[in-house]
Design a protein around this nucleic acid. Structure first.
Lengths: 234, 234
DNA sequence: TTGACAGGTCACTGAAAAGTGACAAGTTCG
DNA sequence: CGAACTTGTCACTTTTCAGTGACCTGTCAA
């Protein structure tokens, strides 16, 4: 059913509609910055709750209660919007906030590499487990490589560099242990378990929905680091 | 360029087209089973090369050189097609093939849990690294939960059960070590690193595209298992 | 031979997607 | 006031997708 042409007819309807309803509907104040914020918040919520497969200009605009053309006008497009979200720390909160007890790179000289690594791994796991947005970002990064995920991957890489700087500043290097690689394996493991807990209940016999399982993970993690650091050969 | 209406005209065009070209184009022999196989192979290739975001009935049918309606007719739909792919071992080859040196559950009694776990982890990593299809399945499982991923997740869970049965059959249980949890952490870590190597070159300072990095991962993995097994407390 | 059925092709619908051009409605400042 | 600019609304195009109804075509058995 093609619309009967257009032009005058549509315009008249629209105008009368507007002037009629203007007394009834609440109208957002016209403010670019708050509208931008609404869009960002909508994208954030949508990604956290529905996942990246549901993330599009239409969905974001609908959720923000805003016309989608504003996404293009204010951000340039979805990739730039995502990049801003990542830049703002909405995806990855500052490391200092996640691990306040971690020493800065300068203070770290008195700590051993292993102790620092363990501290950071624990903090990152806890942070990741309670941040669906970060979980979605990581899962998306594994799924696809495009302009959108590149923006998120850059934010993650920056975070990792920060962690590595802290660890590298540690003084007491265990002689026979490849701590960076150990940290990569364990960090990857914790990340994967956290991601799996969203969609699947269990991994390799481990019930990812039970607190007891996560307690065991934490204990085993600490035991691994301790045991490896005591190793005299490798 | 809109087509000039439709109806009668289109029919006439179509019929004459067919009777004209029937002498020129090669026609596949009409065989349900080979057509099914073509569809399965197309889905397999497409998933392995282009990822799950590109996987749809249209794309599969086009790649198989077949009409998409046959996917519905022969499989019932995409989920069932995926389930069959997973059932056939196209995603996860039999464990015995991946780790031929692993003892069966009956023979495993003479091995320690740790040695078995290490053996299986190494074999699974090697298998995963050279199987884009399995990588895609795992990444998809993290990204979404739907009828399609459920089929793949079921195949993975079956594989894991098989691994756990083998490990559980090991006799010599190290006293103070939570081997199952250790295996879950390490298995998850290796999996995540393998998945990251597809889309991102580096993880926590580890260059996932270099053989040297993977050699270090292997060494560290073995060191971890050995060190933890020697632990006398936990 | 003919009719029934299995194998296969095609055209179409409806929904959802990204993106754009035109315009209306406020706001600001001369 | 009123011109210029900003903010926001709407209609529309094009593309791609899953899914379906109608049809054609080869085969085999009665």
């Amino acid at each position: 059913m093609p619309l009967p042409s257009h032009g005058q007819h549509a315009h008249n309807y629209r105008n009368s509609f507007r002037t009629y309803h203007i007394h009834h509907i609440y109208r957002m104040p016209r403010d670019r910055s708050t509208t931008r914020a609404r869009i960002l918040a909508a994208a954030e919520q949508l990604l956290a709750t529905d996942g990246f497969s549901a993330l599009g200009v239409n969905a974001i605009a609908a959720r923000a209660g805003v016309d989608k053309v504003l996404i293009y006008r204010y951000f340039g497009g979805l990739p730039q919007l995502l990049a801003e979200l990542a830049r703002d720390g909405k995806v990855w909160p500052p490391l200092s906030e996640v691990a306040p007890e971690a020493p800065s790179a300068d203070d770290a000289r008195t700590h051993s590499l292993g102790a620092l690594a363990l501290l950071l791994l624990r903090a990152e796991l806890a942070a990741l487990r309670e941040r669906p947005l970060a979980q979605q970002a990581l899962a998306w990064e594994l799924a696809d490589r495009n302009a959108l995920t590149d923006a998120l991957a850059a934010a993650r890489a920056a975070r990792h560099d920060e962690m590595l700087d802290t660890v590298r500043a540690g003084r007491r290097v265990p002689p026979y242990v490849d701590v960076p690689t150990l940290m990569a394996i364990l960090g990857a493991g914790l990340t994967y378990l956290a991601l799996m807990s969203r969609t699947s209940g269990t991994y390799l016999g481990l019930d990812l929905s039970s607190d007891e399982s996560w307690h065991r993970v934490d204990k085993t993690l600490a035991a691994v680091v301790r045991a490896v650091l005591e190793t005299r050969e490798m």
